[in-house]
């Protein structure tokens, strides 16, 4: 199978504290991959590390065999909701339009084509009526869909989402999952960070269990088998407690 992302020996420090310890794992293309681990286990750090958002101490990452710099324009990143300032004076439309900014032509303004794409994606996530709302004035599920729309507007091949199911209603969760599945079915690769194996796990094709180190990875059915859970024992304890 084609590898979408190959991570080798990734090690990340925040000053003196080790957040990721020699993680080597690969992510298959055309699948929904879940990255699972308790709070503080370095899931967000892993995403930020592979996307070059934070400096890494050691390790290499490649995307479909090429470097991050070459592949960057095909990656969409949905950050964790805690990192967003919901009082920021920005409207739904402006958030989604961010997906159309390109580094190579930073002087450009939004073109008509961009506007069209923004409109389309807002329709896909059923937020057309909220275009001019300030983002703080939406429900949690709507907010998460705004960010999904931004990722869709990027027309990316690889979509990376950090805890998209935290603090949202069932309906939004369903609609996000169905969009994600559509993306997968059209050949895109989706990576979703989540903090436990319940609820949404059944939607993942493959999982990566993480707790500073790589604990296990593979198809969801295999990971759920007892020996693997035993292997990851310390961690399943934590997972169950959640």
């Amino acid at each position: 199978m084609k590898k979408a992302v190959e991570i080798n020996d990734l090690t990340v420090f925040y000053r003196d504290t080790l957040a990721l310890d020699n993680v080597s794992v690969s992510i298959n293309s055309g699948k929904i991959t879940g990255i699972i681990g308790p709070n503080g286990s370095g899931k967000s750090t892993l995403l930020k590390g592979i996307l070059g958002i934070i400096p890494v101490k050691k390790g290499t990452v490649s995307f479909f065999g090429s470097s991050l710099e070459k592949y960057r324009s095909k990656i969409a990143y949905v950050p964790q909701r805690e990192s967003i300032d919901w009082d920021f004076p920005i409207t739904v439309e402006e958030v989604v339009a961010m997906g159309r900014i390109r580094p190579k032509k930073w002087w450009s303004r939004t073109t008509m084509a961009d506007r069209e794409i923004v409109k389309e994606t807002l329709k896909k996530v059923q937020l057309s009526e909220f275009v001019n709302r300030q983002i703080g004035q939406l429900s949690g599920g709507q907010q998460q869909r705004v960010f999904l729309a931004r990722a869709l507007a990027q027309e990316a091949e690889l979509i990376v989402m950090d805890e998209p199911f935290v603090g949202i209603d069932m309906a939004s969760q369903e609609s996000i999952l169905s969009i994600v599945q559509k993306l997968r079915d059209s050949g895109k690769t989706v990576v979703i960070v989540h903090h436990d194996l319940s609820v949404v796990a059944e939607y993942f094709d493959e999982v990566i269990l993480l707790n500073k180190k790589l604990i296990a990875n593979g198809p969801i059915s295999e990971i759920l088998k007892s020996e693997n859970i035993e292997k990851a024992y310390g961690m399943t304890l934590l997972l169950n407690r959640k």
Binding site: E69, E94, W107
Partner: peptide, 21 residues
């Protein structure tokens, strides 16, 4: 010329870095 980029950076810098800015 830069207001969109500066504005977007202010809102969500991690996203902008991930896009290569």
């Amino acid at each position: 010329f830069r207001y969109r980029v500066m504005f977007s950076f202010a809102f969500n810098k991690e996203f902008m870095i991930s896009k290569g800015f």
